[in-house]
Amino acid sequence: MVAPGAGMAWGCCCRISLMGARFAATGLAAQSQRRGGKGNQVLRLICTSAAAAAAAQRKNVAASGPEKYTEAFIKKQIEEFNIGKRHLANMMGKDPETFTQEDVDDTYRKFLDIQKHEDHMRAQDVSSDNTAQINLIGSRWLIKEELEEMLVEELSDQDHRLFIQLLERILTQPYCSTEEEYVLKFRKQLDIESKKLLAEPLQYDEQGVAFSTGAGQRKTARATVVLYDKGTGKITVNGIDYLEYFPVLQHREQLMFPFQFLDRLGKHDMTCTVSDGGKPSQAGAIRLASSKALMSFVAENEIEFMRQAGLLTIDPRVRERKKPGQEGARRKFTWKKR
């Protein structure tokens, strides 16, 4: 940025140059009078050149002279600088009110270091399109007490929050996978419940068709299923087609939900045996049994998705018992005055 006094100095230089040209023209005119008529032509050329140069200099002074660096212009530049400094402070996670010029210079040096690092990575044929992310499934960030114990230092809630924010910002960078070991130091592994669920190995019948078995319960209903691979979607319950056995649409939807969740509709045949309970509880028992049988046909990550969806968890709800002195579990006898 040019200093405000530069335009004034430039104007002075232009006036001095113009005065020098005039003095030179005057001297040449005197010589031309002594030498003859040819000197007049040289004089006209010099005067014309001097006038053109002076006009061009005046134009440059008007374009970039004192008018450009007025008080309003300088005030506008200062406001834009303060706005940019606030944005830079927010981007670096610092307080804009206490962000000094030294912090600006330090940030600029950090940006230069990042640019040098990227140039170095490109020189090693490492593309910036490498956006492989760190796998954080099955882990969580350390809480404040755990981080204090690890660093042997007391932290405030704000420091802990800022530290987690900076780690999450690292995960958004293109080369974050190179710092996977460092980031995972501040995460704690969680026990994945699906690892405790053991899928039964596939069995094969006489025709070589793979099948799996499963058992489930809901209230007093008990169900066992045999699930065959490479089927057409045929399902029988106690020897009856499930459309006839469960005339209510809600019961059929509950029975078919595990297949719909895993996008396996029409890929398996299933034979169910169910006893006790009513139709709603029987549908729930078959749903749990078929989910357990499907574990043998899917990958480990899909088993975890099934567990999170509640397909592998027994429904603990049961019918509430009747209470003495009242008509049912919650219902009271009708009150009569007499």
Rank of each mutant, 00 (worst) to 15 (best):
M1F: 00
A3Y: 01
A6M: 11
W10L: 12
W10A: 08
G11C: 08
C14A: 15
L18T: 14
A24Q: 04
L28G: 02
K38M: 02
V42N: 01
A51T: 12
A53M: 10
A54Y: 02
A55V: 08
V61E: 08
A62H: 14
E67D: 09
K68V: 08
E71F: 07
Q77R: 05
I78C: 11
F81V: 06
F81S: 09
L88I: 08
M91G: 09
D95P: 01
D95G: 04
D103S: 06
V104Y: 06
D105P: 03
D106C: 13
D113H: 13
H117C: 05
M121K: 01
S128R: 02
R140F: 11
L142H: 04
E146T: 13
M150G: 04
L151W: 08
E153C: 10
E153M: 06
F163L: 08
F163D: 02
P174S: 01
Y175W: 02
E181Y: 03
V183P: 04
F186L: 01
Q189E: 11
L197W: 03
A199Y: 04
L202H: 00
Q203C: 04
G214A: 11
Q217Y: 08
T220M: 09
V226H: 03
Y228R: 09
G233Y: 05
I240N: 10
L243T: 15
F246A: 12
R252I: 01
Q254D: 07
L262N: 08
G266E: 15
K267I: 03
H268N: 03
M270N: 13
G277V: 11
I286A: 11
A289T: 09
V298W: 00
V298S: 02
E300H: 02
E300I: 06
N301D: 05
E304S: 03
A309F: 09
L312E: 10
T313W: 04
P316C: 03
R321M: 13
K322C: 15
K322I: 15
K332L: 14
